[in-house]
Write a protein that binds this DNA or RNA. Structure first.
Length: 262
DNA sequence: CTCATTGTTGAGGCGTGTCG
DNA sequence: CGACACGCCTCAACAATGAG
């Protein structure tokens, strides 16, 4: 279990590399989170280096694309054997499915975008009243913008990044409805988990408008189960919240084999 | 038999084309 | 604009085979 914390642990905030990322030297720390450097670094970590040895070992905030590139060169010298593999820096299947265009060099465009978007980003994260969760998702991946602001940062990655931003206190937590919408849009692991539990209908009902409320009801059911099963103190210790529910459901289908084999 | 190596397979996120 | 189908062609999991 401890071998692959990101892939298996349902409580995402407890994974050790994740805690590093949200720490004082990470891109979500208050002194950098609203800057272009912070924005660049958080996109890089989600869209490129997630779940890699590079992310675990290197510094977390980069001042430019060149800075990131220098860090890569450093690691190639420091860990010649490990860093030989491109997957040391970028895992194409970090979120399950293989994203074929996911690659280290995308960071170059990310840096340009971070410069262009810095003002908008600062405004979005500096409001007296925190912006809505969905608005944050839309910042990273505007609906209808097919090329996307950040290449290879798809709907799933944009959702996850917005969750990170919510944890950092820079936007609102998602409502149950917003998570349901994301689960619907992504049509990924969480929906499988809900089907596995029998809380939503079969695959044939996918993309049917009827299923968004069904997804919401399913999520509610899972929330209820955990709230009834664990005391507030236990939930507190687990870091349980609405975001966990989605994350937990993703783990469910992936770990199904492991769970039943035990 | 055990352990190591090679071979096979299918799940799956993202981008694009198309349609309404 | 959103919804959907499809292709990309990788990587982990598992199976088969080989070596000791």
């Amino acid at each position: 279990m401890a071998r692959k914390p990101n892939a298996i642990l349902p409580f995402r905030e407890k994974a050790d590399d994740r805690r590093r990322l949200t720490g004082e030297d990470g891109p979500f720390a208050p002194q950098v989170s609203k800057t272009k450097e912070g924005l660049f670094s958080m996109v890089v970590c989600r869209a490129i280096t997630w779940d890699t040895d590079f992310a675990r070992r290197s510094k977390q905030v980069f001042d430019s694309y060149e800075d990131l590139e220098r860090e890569r060169t450093k690691h190639k010298a420091l860990h010649p054997k490990d860093a030989e593999q491109e997957s040391y820096f970028c895992k194409k299947n970090a979120y399950g499915g293989t994203a074929f265009g996911r690659k280290f060099e995308n960071a170059k465009e990310y840096w340009d975008s971070a410069i262009d978007l810095e003002e908008e980003w600062r405004e979005l994260t500096s409001r007296e009243k925190r912006c809505a969760f969905t608005e944050c998702v839309n910042f990273f991946r505007p609906p209808g913008d097919r090329a996307g602001r950040f290449k290879e940062l798809g709907p799933l990655a944009a959702y996850l990044l917005a969750c990170d931003v919510a944890y950092a206190g820079l936007c609102c937590y998602p409502s149950l409805g917003e998570v349901a919408q994301a689960v619907y849009d992504n049509d990924a692991g969480a929906l499988k988990g809900l089907r596995y539990l029998g809380l939503v209908g079969s695959a044939g009902e996918r993309r049917n408008r009827q299923t968004i409320p069904a997804i919401e009801a399913g999520l509610q059911e899972v929330m209820k189960f955990v709230i009834e099963g664990y005391s507030e103190k236990e939930r507190e210790e687990m870091g349980f919240d609405i975001i966990c529910v989605e994350h937990l459901l993703c783990k469910l289908s992936r770990n199904h084999r492991l769970l039943t084999a035990a």
